[in-house]
Simulated scan of single mutants.
Amino acid sequence: MKLTIEGTPREIKNVLQAIGGSKEHKIINSLKEIDTLANTALSQANQALEQIIQISAHH
């Protein structure tokens, strides 16, 4: 593959930053999704623990 970018130094810099920013954006979104999933799992685990504690308290 050959990629040629023509333009002023500023234009080239902006294009390269946009490409890099896109990768960073995908990584950040992936981390946010992982964080959301982890928080959901933790919330569900806490709810299950509360139910176990309530059941145990009644016995």
Rank of each mutant, 00 (worst) to 15 (best):
S30L: 14
K23F: 06
G7P: 01
G20F: 08
A48T: 10
T40V: 14
L49R: 02
I12L: 04
T40M: 09
T8S: 11
I55N: 02
R10W: 10
Q47T: 14
N29V: 09
T36D: 07
I28A: 03
Q44V: 12
A18Q: 05
G20A: 06
E24K: 13
K23G: 01
Q44D: 10
I55E: 02
I52P: 00
N39T: 15
L16E: 10
I34H: 03
I19P: 00
K2T: 12
G21T: 15
A18S: 07
L37C: 08
I55M: 01
S43E: 14
Q47E: 13
A41D: 09
I28L: 11
A41S: 03
E33G: 06
A57E: 09
I55T: 08
I53F: 03
N29D: 08
N46Q: 04
I28Y: 06
E11W: 04
A38G: 07
T40K: 08
V15W: 06
G20C: 09
N14Q: 05
A41M: 03
T36Y: 12
A57W: 08
G20Y: 04
I28F: 10
V15K: 03
T40Y: 02
Q17V: 15
L42P: 00
A38L: 14
I5Q: 02
T4G: 01
E24F: 01
D35M: 12
Q51C: 06
K32R: 11
T4C: 00
K26H: 02
K13H: 14
Q54M: 12
S22V: 08
K23Q: 00
I19M: 05
E6C: 07
M1H: 04
A57S: 05
E6S: 09
N39Q: 11
T40I: 15
Q51P: 00
K23C: 03
I12T: 09
